[in-house]
Design a protein around this nucleic acid. Sequence first.
DNA 1: ACATTATATGTAATCGGTTACAAGTATAAT
DNA 2: ATTATACTTGTAACCGATTACATATAATGT
Lengths: 329, 329
Amino acid sequence: MVNIRDVSKKAGVSVATVSRVLNNKDVKKETFEHVMSVMEEMKYKPNSVARSLSKKQTNTIALIFPVVSNPFFPKLASSIENEAHEKGYKVILCNTDDNPEKLRNFIDSINDGFADGVIFSSHLLDEAGLNTLKNSGIPVVSIDRNNFNNEFSSISVNNKMGGGLATEHLIEIGCKKIGHLRGPEDEITATNRYWGYRSVLKENGGMDPSLVALGYYTVEGGYQGMKELFIRHPDIDGVFAANDLTAIGAMKAAYEWNRKIPDDLSIVGFDGIDMVRYMIPSITTIQQPINEMGKLAVNELIRKIEEEDEEINNYELDVRLIQNDSTLR
Amino acid sequence: MVNIRDVSKKAGVSVATVSRVLNNKDVKKETFEHVMSVMEEMKYKPNSVARSLSKKQTNTIALIFPVVSNPFFPKLASSIENEAHEKGYKVILCNTDDNPEKLRNFIDSINDGFADGVIFSSHLLDEAGLNTLKNSGIPVVSIDRNNFNNEFSSISVNNKMGGGLATEHLIEIGCKKIGHLRGPEDEITATNRYWGYRSVLKENGGMDPSLVALGYYTVEGGYQGMKELFIRHPDIDGVFAANDLTAIGAMKAAYEWNRKIPDDLSIVGFDGIDMVRYMIPSITTIQQPINEMGKLAVNELIRKIEEEDEEINNYELDVRLIQNDSTLR
DNA sequence: ACATTATATGTAATCGGTTACAAGTATAAT
DNA sequence: ATTATACTTGTAACCGATTACATATAATGT
């Protein structure tokens, strides 16, 4: 592979000048063009590793994400990767599904200098992991997950509002007994969605803890949780599932129990993954602005990297209800 | 950040010795332990960029993938990332959905030295892109996509066999008129799946070109294609969809046309994405061994990188039929 | 014409590691 | 005791860029 010295020799200038051409610094126009043509001719590509070493910047973002279990995450990852590429950054992936040890490994190596910053979302990240990240000294943005101690910038959505929207919608279309399939108890997003549901039902005098079952943010969990709700409340006629996968599980349960959707049971999910449109009937959902979230995360991170800005910002984006057939009465 | 010289000073040895400790070369046991403890104490982490520069190895794989449109790809990406991590490699993502220019950009920068090898699957990669890859001189493995000229190692599945299995299954359960929703005409996987279908139907005397419609590997395509088939053949009672998304689209069409699945219309998909289990009824599919494919791709690539082995291997894995409710007669 | 300033380029140190080679020390062999 | 051999360690060049500083040249002012 041809390097900067080869170019400098052939062009009859110093390596510094070649470097200046590469970085658009002050060089005489003729020199610039001459060096450029030599680079062209020799098919020279500056080595990005060497560049990173001297600049102490890799233009790389590490993305710590649960990637497969829920299609929401690949979509978010994709929007992050797109925006990063747009801004000249590469993205290194660490998908953490169910593998805390792998995650620990990755986190431990994060301040090797290979990444300029981190975007993370894994709920697998425990206190120790968070501390390692914090102490690494590299900029971090958390996404889809609040951080109580305000240690990182964060991008999240108004989960409580979403839970409220979903529940209000179910009330509006005439549901009398509305259940909730909540996400994991240790996830703040799940808790907020639950609080949105809860506060709306309280206002309307219909809150009852037995109307809430765990759906664990999974299809299987939603299926099991919905069956529990059917047993506890045979007359349940609406359910707010904490995410779309859970809603799909609830649909499967409803089908087994011979409840017609939306007439016997209306369902609202959360996230806005493609799948909700493919189900029959299609599922009403609370849509998260995935693209905006990804862009915001990347730009906030890059701001921190390039401006060496320690300021912590917490963005909370709004969600909106997408009505589909599962609540069409 | 503490570097190797800081450690060498504090430990009272040369940087070479510290480096030897890092690389498990010959050092006296006591020295080894002493240096190790100093590194521990100073919380020293070797800088991976510097390391990459001198070793001329980044331990990084570039992954060129369509990542979001079809859940099959995130899953495959995930299995690749897992195996790579297992082997001490990082994965840089380039998702190409509908963005040929981005892809070109990425390809052009691939021999900057930031990646040791490439795994790619995008059908967006045109002749020019393939050439750039080929000329880059870095090891490449193609996945889920044959390469006629045998320029890269490849991992694929026996698509023709899959198409055959699907079609035979439909015949076995008693379908009399079996259609096919094929993938894009320029994709070799789609063509092979079609040939599997075609050869089985020919053997059974039931092949008729009008039984084939384009499904484009998408939900919408499957939906439109299925409607075409209903119009052309009102008595169609079985369909092999070239992938699971297409099968889902076909299901939606069947629902609109009031055909009961599986009794009026039996459906078989291809890929084995989670979604097929969530649909009601669940969809019979030809499952690809995603994990094996990912592992194989990574290991083949690493072999090429580390052994500087130019040998080209083409692996073709078997698929298997997973029977679900959409063909349960 | 000469001093001053701006512009363009080169020299060499640097980023943080690895490693070929040299040199020193300990152990075995004669 | 002396030489050969194995084992450890250090010195310094190197990977391929960037950049502070020095220097040379051109442009401007008086």
